[in-house]
Computed example of a mutant assay.
Amino acid sequence: MTSVLYDVPGPRAIARNRILAVVTILVVLAAIGFIVFRMVETGQFSAEKWYVFTFANVWMGIVKALGNTLAAFALAAVLSLVLGFVLAIGRLSDHAWVRVPVTVVTELFRAVPVLVFMMLLYYGLPVVGVKMEPYWAVVIALMAYNGSVLAEVIRAGVESLPKGQKEAGYAIGLRKSGVMRLILLPQAIRAMLPVVVAQLVVTMKDTALGFIITYPELLYYAKQLTSQQGRPILQSAFVIGGIYIVLCLILAGIAKWVEVRTRRSTKVRGIDAAVGPDPRTHEDGTNTELIALQRGVGKYDGTSTGG
């Protein structure tokens, strides 16, 4: 018996896979057990190590640092998306005098590491008489790098669409701007949404690089906590790392919700446009056959099933 993509494993292969799965689980559990054992041996779970987190002022400082992290991320994310759209449209231009400079700028921003960009803005600009606050150095560096990456994502999404999409837009009289805005970009964004979200998660995590230029975000505050009584280095890393994990999960959840809503609304609009209004729609606006069609459990053939 075979599957579409691969051969179904036989009894010996199934037994071998089960043995490998058991061995892998045992190795992982052994590694976790060793780490926990070493932490117990070195007193990482002692009250002294966690004593600093019993103070309300410490948690107020964490909340303030979290606010600084979110402030930098929010503005950088919005500006990155705007810059990504601008650079992507520029790279898709038919005019060489637009496409070539935009390509050079995009590749330049992608080539410079975020930390180097931050240090150039914060430490380099004062050399020429321009002083920049750490917040703006973080935001601009994140915007430049992530915006250039998103530009390539959007461009790849547009170019991956069938050429018939663009030709159909031109056939009904749309200009290139209309084809891009009404046909290509919406489809490309829906297709590339997981990649866009992944890049925004990278943007959020890269705000931690701001501690190098003394921006008071979460990692900067965690570094300050490590010098407190008991030197809670691992404890601070666990707390701050847990906050970053929660933030990334929230962002991924929001993106998943948007993706589901977008697909659902697009599917419903496509069905309504193809079927059109039905005179047999009930007074409350529902139509049993259309509902069945949307759910994939029935087939609408234009005939009434009623008596």
Rank of each mutant, 00 (worst) to 15 (best):
Y145C: 04
P126Y: 14
P113C: 07
A156M: 03
P194V: 06
L115W: 05
F73G: 14
V100E: 14
M204W: 02
P162D: 14
R190A: 08
A141H: 04
P126V: 12
R99S: 15
F117C: 15
K205W: 06
I172W: 02
H95I: 08
G67M: 07
V105L: 15
A188Y: 01
A65D: 03
I172R: 03
T103S: 15
P134H: 07
P101S: 10
L79K: 10
V102M: 10
K176A: 10
G84H: 04
L185Q: 05
M143G: 10
R181H: 04
A151F: 10
Y135W: 11
A151D: 05
A74E: 04
A208H: 06
V78I: 14
A188I: 00
L184F: 00
A137L: 11
V153P: 02
L182Q: 03
V158I: 15
L115F: 12
P186G: 03
L121M: 11
R155N: 09
A188C: 02
V78F: 12
I183N: 00
H95Y: 14
V86Q: 06
K131Y: 11
D206I: 11
V114Y: 12
S93C: 11
A76Y: 07
L174T: 03
R181M: 06
M192Y: 03
K205R: 15
V104N: 09
E159S: 03
M132D: 06
V98G: 07
E159G: 01
L108K: 14
V114L: 15
A71L: 05
V128M: 15
I183A: 02
V127S: 14
V195A: 13
Q165P: 05
D206R: 10
G157T: 03
L182R: 01
M119C: 04
S177M: 07
Y123E: 13
K131D: 15
E159P: 00
T207Y: 07
P162T: 01
S177Q: 09
F73P: 10
V202P: 00
R91G: 02
K163M: 01
V114K: 15
P194N: 05
A72I: 11
L200T: 08
T106M: 14
M204N: 01
L92S: 05
S160N: 04
M132C: 08
L79V: 14
V127W: 09
A151Y: 02
L142P: 05
L70V: 13
A168H: 00
R190C: 01
K131G: 06
L184I: 00
G84I: 07
R91H: 07
A111R: 12
L79G: 12
V158Y: 00
A111I: 13
A88E: 09
K176G: 08
V153F: 03
P101W: 12
R155P: 10
F109N: 12
K64D: 11
L185F: 08
A156R: 01
D206C: 11
L185G: 03
L200W: 05
V197C: 15
K64N: 11
V201F: 09
Y122S: 14
I154M: 10
T207N: 05
P186C: 03
V202L: 11
S148M: 02
F85A: 06
P162C: 04
G164H: 04
M204D: 04
K163S: 10
I154G: 02
V202W: 06
T69A: 11
T69D: 12
R155F: 12
A72H: 04
A191D: 07
P101H: 13
R99F: 14
